[in-house]
Structure formats: structure tokens, C-alpha cells
Design a protein around this nucleic acid. Structure first.
Length: 466
RNA sequence: GGCGGCAUAGCCAAGUGGUAAGGCAGAGGUCUGCAAAACCUCCAUCCUCCGGUUCAAAUCCGGAUGCCGCCUCCA
């Protein structure tokens, strides 16, 4: 795993590990860049869980910042109401993107006293100062500030684009811990009364403190490209005041946006969403796409790229469906050697990719090779049930980490169908055999009315519930 | 202006010294009532450009060009 400080960090997966991710800004809860890193950290968490670690995952939400406040005001809601709505939306999204259900979404507003404690501590140590009713951190009082290899502090071009006279900081690099509230904040009650006046905690303090509240200790921080400087340094400083020192910092890149492509998540879901009948299939496709490229490289959001991954998702899903239906097949007790080899390669490929800096992009070719082999065997017929079972098992084991398959969209085995539906399917097969295609098509319609979709394959009809 | 990153086919993309993975799109074929798939074959003598190091470079070094992020509030 890569450390933002330069090299690789080896994370010990035998103990307990807390993973903390910077969540989307509450004025833009659907930000695909944020969801890319949430899905990445989810894969990391699932992988560590599988390796035997005790993992806690939390996502920090800054709900006291200017962006949230102005969004709430634009929506005509109180801050609390607005935040409650957005957090609910984020939780729902997390569910649809299959983040681990135990993922904690922690709003900063729940930890205001803790924020104030940390500020008092920093002031007490002389690392922070108050000026005109705001509290700032003095970066010159932290020897390590700027050591994260993110930025050469001596070469920063400070004040290049901003008039320094606008600030009351002692040093333009100093960052805000507590910001004095505006008159409007005061009117709307969006302030915290303190010994320094009416303030709001800065984004850094909010994110830092939400992490502490949710996890107690942060071991791995997952941030975005644009958080690298100064945000990571600032978080480090605040956490360090609370005695917390993350072991690894990782930052993913942003999307490479193409003009004219809508990056609204719901649109993306429908674009990566498999067939039109599928109501929920798109989330898996979206998740696959979000994981498709190396996290330290930009993710292409072009239409072509999106449809490519939609097809890829479909392919994997279809193979899982095919395997599921082949489970019942006979064909001996032994798994053919080439099948065992393919299963082994798939397993080894995933392990290698995950161990080496979560490089899932190197796993996909292995997965596609596997899918192609399996499809070949399936369409050749007489694929032994034990072999199908082994393949499906491995595919599902991989999916425990990847979370891309849609198990609710699996075909239903004939003997599991309701009797009336089963009768319709059989009737349709008979019609097809008799080449009565008008009857066959109308039965397809009828089945769709009952909530089932039929696909014909060489091995017989495949029935999906809608 | 400074710092950092990236540049591989129509598109996405792997590949850090030994002669270009994989996918999408495209072409041809098999299968096919429809629909949806699947399978087989083909598709970069070359990795932005110019120099250099080396027996050997997409890979290392120098330079050029282009794109992206940060250097400032929000945070």
C-alpha cells in the first residue's frame, strides 16, 4: 500500500485496523470522485477483513462548513434538517454501492466539544493563537510540518494569487482551527459559543474530529488528490495533538472528465447498468467502473469507457449466472485439471493484485481470461457440476472483496420457480419446439407480466426474476 | 511564476533494461425463429518528439511539446 509520504507502507493485518475516508462534501453528496475513494477504501477494508484483521471503517462528513451552510440556506432548510437529509441520501448510496454495512458515516457536528478540547490543547501548547476571534494553527511551531513529501515548504509561492492583506493570520501558511462566525451564522444559530467568541470549526478540525469520534484511532487515511496539500498536513497536526498518528496515508486521483458527459451518479448507474430490465444491476457496474483503473491514475469518464465497463460487468455477471445454472449438472466427481488451473490462476491473480498496492487493474485481465474459459466450457456443454461449483465458489470469493456481482439478478433454477410460472416456461418451450413463435412471444410477455424474464440458451431457457 | 504527476492503437489500459497483457469498438466466421449472449480468427515492427547511455530502452538520463493536480479562500 502506498504511503503519501513516499514509499510503501506494509500494514499488519493481524491486529485491528481503522480506516478513515474523507467523505463527499455535503453540498455535493454524489461527487463521483468521493465515491471512487469510498469504494476503494471499501475494497481495502473487505480485503483486510478477509485477511483476518479486525477492521473499523468510517467516513468523515464536514457538516459545519460554509458549503454545507450555504446549501442548506439555498434549500431553505435548517442546517440540521439539511444534513439529516443528505446523510440519509449518502447512506442509501453506500448501500447501493455495497459498502460494508458497518461503515460509519460520521458528521463533525456530533463532536464539537472534542474539537474545542483539541483547540484548547493546541493553544495551551502555544502551537495555536487567537486573532480577531478566530483561532489559527501556527505552522512554524510544528517541526514536521511539510515533511510529507507533498510539497516543498520553502518553495511555496505564497500569496501568488491572493492579496495577503485580506488575512489576519500571522503567517499566510497558518491554517484556521476555529473561524469566527458571520452575522448570518449567528442569526441562524449556526455557531458555537466559546471563550474565543462565536465560531465554527474549520474543515480540518471537523474532519479530524469526526474521525476520532467514529474510530478513536485512525490507522489508514484515504483521501483524494486535491486533499494532498495542505489538508493532509493539517489533519496530521490536529490528530497529533490528540495523540493519533496514522500509519498510512493514501490519495487517489480524480476522474478524467470528458466534456458533455454527465457525472451524476444516477445517470452513471443507468449508463453502466446492464440491460434495460434490470432495476438494480447498474450499481455493480458503477462499482466495477470506479475500481477499473489504478487508483493513482485518473479514471476515464468518457462515454466509451463507461459503456466498455458496463459490458465488462455484464460479461462477468452472465458467467456467474451460467455457472449457477450449471451447478446441478452431473458429469463425474472430479474437477478437470484445466478447470482447477483456471480457478487457481484467478485466485492467485486477485491475491497478488490486492497485496501489491490494491492494483485491481491488474486483476481484470485475469478475470476476463477466466470468464472466457468458463464461457467456452459452458457453451461446449457437459461441464461437470462439481467444476461449475468450484468456479462459482471462486468467483463469489473474489466478489466478497470486489462487491460487483448482483446476486439478486441471478437466474432462477427451474425447480425453484413458482408452479404457475414454471408451467408458463414449459408451455413456451413446447411452443418453441413446435415453431409456434407467436405463442412463444406472447408467453414471454406473460412471463414478464409475472415478473420474470426469459433468455433462451443452448442449455434451455434461463429465467430471471425482474 | 514555482512544485509534482502523466503522455502506449479509434477508445480505455498493463507493462521500470531483453524485444508490446487485457478489454471496448471494428472486420470475418460458428451458433441462432425472435431477443440476448457466447465461442473462434484478425486488428501497434512499435510506445508524443529530439538527443544521449547501453550489446540491448516504451522502460534509464537530458531537452522540447502537450495535458492534469497543487501552490489561495471555502477547508
Amino acid at each position: 500500500m502506498n504511503l503519501a509520504t513516499g514509499g510503501k507502507a506494509v500494514v499488519d493485518a493481524t491486529g485491528s485496523l481503522n480506516i478513515y475516508t474523507i467523505g463527499p462534501s455535503l453540498d455535493e453528496p454524489d461527487d463521483p470522485d468521493a465515491w471512487r475513494r469510498l469504494v476503494l477504501s471499501d475494497v481495502l477494508a473487505r480485503h483486510l477483513v478477509k485477511s483476518g484483521a479486525q477492521v473499523k471503517v468510517a467516513v468523515g462528513l464536514a457538516d459545519l462548513d460554509d458549503r454545507t451552510l450555504s446549501s442548506a440556506r439555498a434549500a431553505g432548510l435548517s442546517r440540521a434538517d439539511y444534513v439529516a437529509g443528505v446523510v440519509q441520501r449518502i447512506t442509501k448510496r453506500a448501500q447501493s454501492l455495497r459498502l460494508l454495512p458497518e461503515t460509519i458515516f460520521e458528521p463533525a457536528s456530533a463532536s464539537v466539544p472534542k474539537a474545542l478540547d483539541i483547540c484548547r490543547k493546541l493553544l495551551g501548547k502555544g502551537q495555536a493563537y487567537e486573532k480577531l476571534r478566530s483561532v489559527y494553527f501556527d505552522v512554524r511551531r510544528d517541526k514536521r510540518y511539510g515533511n510529507m513529501h507533498l510539497m516543498d515548504m520553502d518553495k511555496l509561492s505564497v500569496g501568488k494569487t491572493v492579496d495577503l492583506d485580506d488575512y489576519v493570520k500571522d503567517n499566510p501558511l497558518d491554517f484556521t482551527l476555529l473561524k469566527r462566525a458571520t452575522l448570518q451564522d449567528l442569526k441562524l444559530g449556526d455557531v458555537i459559543e466559546t471563550e474565543w467568541g462565536n465560531v465554527r470549526p474549520s474543515w480540518f478540525v471537523q474532519i479530524a474530529v469526526a474521525g476520532l469520534s467514529a474510530l478513536g484511532r485512525v490507522d489508514v487515511l484515504v483521501a483524494g488528490e486535491d486533499h494532498q496539500f495542505p489538508h493532509l498536513e493539517n489533519l496530521r497536526v490536529v490528530w497529533s495533538a490528540a495523540g493519533v498518528e496514522p500509519k498510512a496515508w493514501l490519495a487517489d486521483r480524480k476522474l478524467a472528465r470528458e466534456e458533455g458527459v454527465t457525472l451524476d451518479l444516477d445517470t452513471l448507474i443507468s449508463q453502466t447498468g446492464g440491460n434495460a430490465d434490470s432495476q438494480t444491476g447498474g450499481a455493480g457496474g458503477l462499482r466495477l467502473w470506479l475500481l477499473s483503473a489504478a487508483y493513482r491514475k485518473p479514471l476515464s469518464a468518457s462515454t466509451q469507457s463507461l459503456s466498455m465497463w458496463a459490458r465488462n460487468w455484464h460479461k462477468v455477471q452472465e458467467t456467474a449466472c451460467g455457472l449457477r445454472l450449471a451447478l446441478g449438472a452431473g458429469g463425474g466427481k472430479d474437477v478437470p485439471e484445466d478447470v482447477a488451473q483456471a480457478v487457481f490462476d484467478l485466485k492467485a491473480g486477485l491475491a497478488a493484485a490486492l497485496e501489491d498496492d490494491l492494483s485491481l487493474h491488474r486483476y481484470w485481465p485475469k478475470l476476463f481470461t477466466f470468464v472466457k474459459l468458463v464461457n467456452g466450457w459452458l457453451s461446449a456443454g457437459n461441464f461437470p457440476g462439481v467444476a461449475a461449483s468450484l468456479c462459482l465458489q471462486q468467483l463469489e470469493a473474489a466478489d466478497a472483496v470486489l462487491g460487483i456481482l448482483d446476486l439478486s439478478q441471478m437466474p432462477v433454477a427451474c425447480d425453484c420457480l413458482p408452479a404457475d410460472v414454471r408451467a408458463l416456461v414449459e408451455e413456451r418451450e413446447a411452443a418453441r419446439k413446435a415453431k409456434d413463435f407467436a405463442a412463444s412471444d406472447s408467453l414471454r410477455e406473460k412471463l414478464s407480466g409475472c415478473g420474470f424474464r426469459v433468455e433462451d440458451t443452448a442449455q434451455g431457457p434461463r429465467v430471471y426474476s425482474l
